[in-house]
Amino acid sequence: MKKTILILGIATAFIFSSCEPNNNTTAPDSYIATFNSRIDTVRDFAADTAIIAFGAAGPQYAGKYSFYSLENDSMVPRLDSNTTKWDIAFSGTIILVNNTISGPGNGGGFVYSGLYNSLTGVPKDSVIKTDVSVPNNCAIPWGSGNGWYNYSGQTYLVNPIPGRVLVIRTASGKYAKVEIMNYYIGGVTPDASETLNEKVAKQRYYTFRYSLSN
């Protein structure tokens, strides 16, 4: 798995603070937590990419999850899936948080509609959900148009919905805002005219950025 972490913190923090200098301090009481201005970007995070069979039925996958620790900026081995070391897990388009049936942590989450930069904190009236059943009743809803992505039956492409930010409560109870930027290797959605084979070979590689709470 290829993984690079890019820190855009300083530059973004500067722009951010110059635009809305008082946003974090004017009404701190209305937030459960406010987000740090540091942004980490994770690229090409593979989420169950190994095809075990391919026939007329299309690709079949092992159904395995890839785990990530937002707090430690690192991938977590699958052996540690039943621990509180991870905060978010991916398998295809399914996203889990570390809580209830998914893991032993205190995780949770919901999908916020709006721009990443304008989400400065977790509002007090937020309803933070947990994973009740996989995949149909998750904190981050699964399915085209339900949560973070739209899938087109015409182009066979998965595209993150612009203006959707995942608010994740980590296993330890901190908060993070996560924006899924792309679902394909290299962070580039294949051209609609590419063949299904080409599209399948490139899918299930997440590019996302996130900021933790202070």
Binding site: G145, Y149, L157, N159, P162, A192
Partner: peptide, 16 residues
Amino acid sequence: YLNDINGNGLLDNNDE
């Protein structure tokens, strides 16, 4: 225009 390719579920002039 044919398909939404920027994920917002509708057709805008960024689409295919």
